[in-house]
Amino acid sequence: MKEMTAKTSKSGAARRQFIFDSAKMVCGVGMLGLGLGLYAKQSKALPALALRPPGALPEDDFLGACIRCGMCVRDCPYNTLELAKPETQVTTGTPFFTARNIPCEMCEDIPCIKACPTGALDHGLTDINKAKMGVAVLIDHETCLNFLGLRCDVCYRVCPVIDKAITLDMVPNTRTGRHAMFLPTVHSEHCTGCGKCEKSCVLEEAAIRILPPKLAKGELGKHYRVGWEEKSKAGHSLIDESKMVDLPDRLPEGAVLPGHYDPASGHTESMRGMPGSEAGAIPSLPPGLGGKP
């Protein structure tokens, strides 16, 4: 009997010891895990100017799929990619490039994706023109030479998707009053984010930069419909324009807007310099635009 109690108390002590040891480990290692987990969450914040290789999954997935082997770095013929070092802001060991240093040359066979042993770089991407490494944004309208009225155009001319991803849009130069400005305009649906525009911008600090699409793009509410697109889709206006109600406009006392249509009185002011052009006037268009032949 005595022996038995001794035995049970011994096994009880052993059990207690086991529970204490386990608790010690769970707590100690749990703390390490908590720290690592929070670090992992933070590591998902990719710096804006660090770009992932073409076909890279969204950052959330990328950090789970990429095993940091560097095969993409090795098979890039232009040494564009590098692996993040421990002190780099990019998650340690993952591949990235900085457009201003070496941009992506958009190889047609996309060797970096082929080299990837995981799904971190989407092997389904076979057309480099469909890559979305980021979106170019002409971020500074104050220093861009074209905005200053010069014909720099370098970003436009180096663009591998020229005239689609970047176009030059002509607008009047109101400063001089007699010249045109050719504004580089990015069309995000065609931009791959290769970074050649950012690399070649002649300024000390590039005025055009590749940003993650999330930073670069606004997003319309899901319920938004763009009238003119719906109109061209349907082949006709979606509303009965003849029944359009135009509310009366409030104008300062005595103000006269040439060509202005006032639904309250049904009267249209005559166009400046074009007396009697009432017939062509469009309701409520700002002065100078409506009804010009």
Binding site: L36, Y39, S43, D61, L83, K85, T92
Partner: peptide, 27 residues
């Protein structure tokens, strides 16, 4: 839980080996 290859964030083994091949940095 985090969706990140967790140990690779700080793994000294891969940091050293990768560092020797791809650039050591502060590893």
């Amino acid at each position: 839980l985090t969706g990140v290859v967790l140990w690779e964030l700080i793994n000294p083994v891969s940091m050293l080996h990768r560092g020797l091949i791809f650039g050591l940095g502060m590893a």
